[in-house]
Amino acid sequence: MSKLRVATCSIAGCFGCHMSLLDIDERLFELVKAVEFDRSPITDIKHCGPCDIGLVEGGVCNAENVHVLKEFRKNCRILVAMGSCAITGGIPAWRNNVDLWDCFQEVYHYGIGLENGQVPNDPELPLPFDKVHPINEVVRVDHFLPGCPPPADAIWRFLTDLAAGREPRLDYEMLHYD
């Protein structure tokens, strides 16, 4: 049986979901037997090719997130929103009720220790959205794996179910919004 190709990324997230993925501990050995990682912070591959599963951590807070997300959607047969931020916007979405002007002013003009601060306008810097959004408001998402982060057991169950072609089913204790 050929290995499943899996891509992962963290957009507006904290990499906590990736940490939880690594928390499957010794099952990692089983995992690498069954899957091959494409684009992922684990492999440091920068762009993904055709994959079976894409795991997206984090919400969408800027233009670059959209490019990454669209690349994942285009290349991944099954796209999974992994964790609270990808599913609801999460903690980053707390900024949704702060005016973007005020954010920039605070960060670049009035922050402690700043003098003659200026808002950077380098095209290399991703431009932020007015609000942070969950990924399913930008692309079609096939599965949702909640949790902040999702427990390692939940990620393992999810991946093994998907690998086996089953509809993923979480036990009660595995389902968390926090």
């Binding site: 929103a81 609801t88 959004h133 969950p134």
Partner: peptide, 18 residues
């Protein structure tokens, strides 16, 4: 939350109003 768990809600699904 608990009712969400009970009903197996995995995503809020609808666009958020924020």
């Amino acid at each position: 939350q608990a009712v969400g768990y009970h009903l197996g809600m995995l995503t809020p699904h609808f666009p958020h109003f924020y």
